[in-house]
Nucleic acid binder design. Structure first.
Lengths: 206, 206
DNA sequence: TAGATTGTTAATCGATTAACAATC
DNA sequence: TAGATTGTTAATCGATTAACAATC
């Protein structure tokens, strides 16, 4: 099963499971069934079992899933069992907001460098990180083995930043700019676009 | 066709079309084909034609789509042809960042009120908006006919804010807190969760 | 007219859900 | 043992893509 291709929909649900399991763990809940999970997360229990079964047999028939064991397994699947260094470009309001999530990301992902191309921002300190000029991006990314890049610059600069990330060897990009960026197929891009999100929400108004 | 139920996937693509069409319009491009659109947006042309055809016959055979006409139509479909008042709760970094997008949202959606429950934030001015105490939420939301609510408070407070939104009569919620919130079925909720986004991205690292 | 491109039907593909034997 | 719940197969459902007649 290890070689089977996993659908994007499945991968997107794993972090949702993980978050809820973490809450259960904090409350010292030992065991959870797909039934329970489905109820809380508004998902079909069969779907949850199937999602997990792609990666192994994590449950016990008649019992359910051990919460802490399942957390460990999902963290492994998502590669969150070791620190992933992240860099962010664009020290505007959104960039600052995301840097301050650093604490929230716990021990797995860490924004370890922040860049901006505008002199006025360079040298600022955000959450203990000094904003550096984009000219230093490549060197720092390679030196610190940054694997994920976050783009929070204006739309017009997004593609340029993406190019720099790719050249520096970043493996995946989370793009907050309202602009589709083109990268080589081996680099994974996710879009997190606040405006499209809001606009599609408007559709559902009466 | 007006009564047919449109899938969520279709609705999520419409704002993406809209954004690209706006760029074309700015460049004075008059006409675009599904071929062109598909190329730029990494989508199948047949899918684009089908998406649009759910709502009417907007194109001309042999020619393509008139850019400005299509913009107008998509704006109507998404109900962006009139101003939609939006309120935001949580004047932290993320909330501030989103308020500053106000300009970007052009004339269709407008964050017209910002609330926070912490005394230290109340009275601050963000992008010409004064942060008000959450106690005033209901009155202001009803008075100003706010239709969409944005939640940018910590996870622990998200459900409480959602309840207040629902009670005040908000029709849809965009939730940035990393927490699933429960609302009555008639209220639409979208989750825009930065951490799950980043975590699913990690899966694709080698 | 010839070339291009839509709108739409039919075919394909993939994801979700139901059902149930296995088993704790 | 009886009850509960998994892992997995089969059935269903829905979304994407291909193909093409209509027509600008």
């Amino acid at each position: 099963m290890k070689t089977m291709k996993i659908s994007e929909a499945v991968v997107r649900r794993l972090p949702v499971y993980l978050r809820f399991l973490n809450e259960l763990s904090k409350k010292n809940v030992q065991t959870v069934s797909s039934q329970d999970l489905g109820q809380k997360l508004d998902l079909n229990p069969a779907q949850i079992r199937k999602d997990l079964a792609y990666f192994g047999e994590f449950g016990k028939k008649g019992i359910g899933y051990d919460v802490d064991y399942l957390i460990e397994k999902i963290r492994q699947i998502l590669k969150l069992d070791k620190i992933i260094p992240v860099a962010l470009v664009g020290a505007g309001n959104l960039g600052r907001a995301l840097c301050n999530y650093n604490a929230y990301l716990k021990d797995n992902m860490k924004i370890i460098a922040v860049f901006d191309s505008h002199g006025s921002k360079i040298g600022d300190t955000i959450n203990n990180l000094k904003v550096k000029p984009t000219g230093e991006m490549k060197a720092i990314i390679q030196e610190q083995k940054v694997r994920i890049g976050i783009i929070t610059v204006p739309a017009a600069e997004a593609q340029h930043v993406a190019n720099q990330f790719v050249e520096a060897g970043v493996e995946a990009i989370l793009n907050f700019a309202p602009m589709i960026i083109k990268v080589p197929a081996e680099v994974r891009v996710h879009h997190a676009d606040f405006t499209t999100e809001l606009q599609s929400l408007a559709y559902y108004l009466d």
